[in-house]
Design a protein around this nucleic acid. Sequence first.
DNA 1: CAGCATCCGTTAGGATACTG
DNA 2: CAGTATCCTAACGGATGCTG
Lengths: 110, 110
Amino acid sequence: MALKDERKIKKTESCPFQEAMDLISGKWTMSIINVLMGGKMRFKELERSVVGINTRMLVKELKQLEHKKIIDRTAFATMPPTVEYALTEKGERLKPVLTEIQVWAIKNMS
Amino acid sequence: MALKDERKIKKTESCPFQEAMDLISGKWTMSIINVLMGGKMRFKELERSVVGINTRMLVKELKQLEHKKIIDRTAFATMPPTVEYALTEKGERLKPVLTEIQVWAIKNMS
DNA sequence: CAGCATCCGTTAGGATACTG
DNA sequence: CAGTATCCTAACGGATGCTG
């Protein structure tokens, strides 16, 4: 049986800015990208690194990010299975965005 | 009767980064901030400038942004009423974030 | 390990009529 | 003009059990 929980993975978008915002929005998205900035990671490592996320959410986010070419998924046919997630070039280029958000956050929150 | 649609205006947050993301997330948030970068605006002007938004969403977002000190609301007791929205200093400082997102969007979307 | 499936409650978001 | 109120659907998010 196919994946049941799979929705359209997004809707009608307009300008590039909106599309980008659409990508960036999402409770866990940027956190995941953030930890992946440190290098490739396995599923379980991610689950531990992104504090508070649960399996379903992580799977969902990873799928969306993969679909949008922000991350690459590499599976190894070992037993038990090994899967590595890493940022693509496109994903790496989000670095400045991340940086600016963090700079702003540190200076302006709390 | 008090406002019915008013929810908690957000939940438990953790680190400054998450708080910032929490703020930035939201379909219309950055678009609104973006048009306000061009200078103060009235409610109706905003409604026209932020293409696709509807009254309820605009009111909601503006309320949140005001609450988070990103924008200032100034009302004039004229008839018909006049209300102006403008970015605060804190809001203005989001400029670099906006810029980086736009740069990324243009280079990496579609 | 790396996931998928299922149940389920909470928010986000949208359309639109109405008011001071 | 600047919102409010009401009704609704869709998407988000969480907990947890199961499987190749």
